[in-house]
Design a binder for these strands. Sequence first.
DNA 1: ATTAATTTTTAGTCTAGACTAAAAATTAAT
DNA 2: ATTAATTTTTAGTCTAGACTAAAAATTAAT
Lengths: 219, 219
Amino acid sequence: MTTSLAEENYLKIIYRLCEGTKEDISTNSIAELTNNKAASVTDMLQKLAEKGWVTYQKYQGVRLTKIGQNIALSIIRKHRLWEVFLVEKLGYNWDEVHEIAEQLEHIESETLINKLDSFLDFPKIDPHGDPIPSQEGEIPELGYLHLSEVKLNETCTLMGVAKDSAVFLQLLTKLNLSLGARLEVLEINTFDRSVSLKIAEQEPIFISHEVAKNILVKV
Amino acid sequence: MTTSLAEENYLKIIYRLCEGTKEDISTNSIAELTNNKAASVTDMLQKLAEKGWVTYQKYQGVRLTKIGQNIALSIIRKHRLWEVFLVEKLGYNWDEVHEIAEQLEHIESETLINKLDSFLDFPKIDPHGDPIPSQEGEIPELGYLHLSEVKLNETCTLMGVAKDSAVFLQLLTKLNLSLGARLEVLEINTFDRSVSLKIAEQEPIFISHEVAKNILVKV
DNA sequence: ATTAATTTTTAGTCTAGACTAAAAATTAAT
DNA sequence: ATTAATTTTTAGTCTAGACTAAAAATTAAT
Ligand SMILES: [Mn+2]
Ligand SMILES: [Mn+2]
Ligand SMILES: [Mn+2]
Ligand SMILES: [Mn+2]
């Protein structure tokens, strides 16, 4: 069965919302992320349920079926592989690629994405540290911590970000925070939970709790 | 101003039809190439005229304006650059890339296509020998001949094809006819205008007039 | 347990881009 | 010059995917 652009965007967003919780997903939360009104979402949920990609009970929320999950994962796979291409091959910065990948992820071709995968040497993560699902829809659970959860004086490695908005990524770049950086937590202010960090050989930097929450690390 | 997928496809097809002739283009000829009904084409022509991309007189046919031409050329530029990418970088054959490029040509990004151009080393022609328009919409007139016009005993070089259907390209591949091949016209049968050809060091081959008409050469 | 607030759905509408059937204009044939 | 054939346009309809306003269901508050 074939998927429209609108359907693919809904499935991707429902996937993201399902990831966080085992509760059913609300109409409003989807409306917020798709930038549609709740009434439009209800319409689409009925169509998606009809096609067997979500289970949906009126007023009770929605979840992806196994098939729906696989469609979502294949779009995420395409999105992330294209992001790798844009950064590795075309020389984009990590804060510039998301919007373009939002378009490229909808290109439909059995062979294209696997050839791209091979051309890129089968990367396991994208430029933001997010894992790339396999062709079969396997996605490793990386088990990273948020930097905000790391204890005082512990050292950790920056593995990814929990948000890919351009302004956030640009801030990290300015602070010299990039994938692979070694970070030591020097100080955690109890007042606002802001954090003082040492990066390798550099002068310590300060970041807010909000920033720390969106940085993923391995201890 | 922004262009929809449907509009882009119409502009591209009108461009192709305008290329061949200085007459205005008929509604029916567009309908044939877009696989739409004439009534739908009339609808769209009115919209395109409204936007200033074509000049259109009821019942009198249509032509692209300068702006319309530039939009069409930018889509053709994208199409052909992506075709080069697919063949040169991902290892596709020349008969496999057209459909995928039909999708990729609609990706919208100021920077993407120029970075791609640079990544590919600023190619001048696509895998079918078609010239790639510059960023400014310049497209060289290559002045190739159809192989069917070449005189007996003349030698020429295969520079491109006038048709990019997969079956046609596969036939050429089977006959060992690829870009750059040196061809000598050994025989032209007056009965059906079929042609006998010598390719470099190989045994002579026979091709129909229909095939010869769609091969572009430089003498 | 009722009532109030919130969330979700339904009903009705709109737009882009397609369609068919019929009308109008153009072109070809006598 | 008329008439016939062909092409093109108009009028009316449909679908996907959005919207608003109002109704219905659920959840929270008394
Ligand atoms: Mn992204
Ligand atoms: Mn990413
Ligand atoms: Mn092509
Ligand atoms: Mn081509």
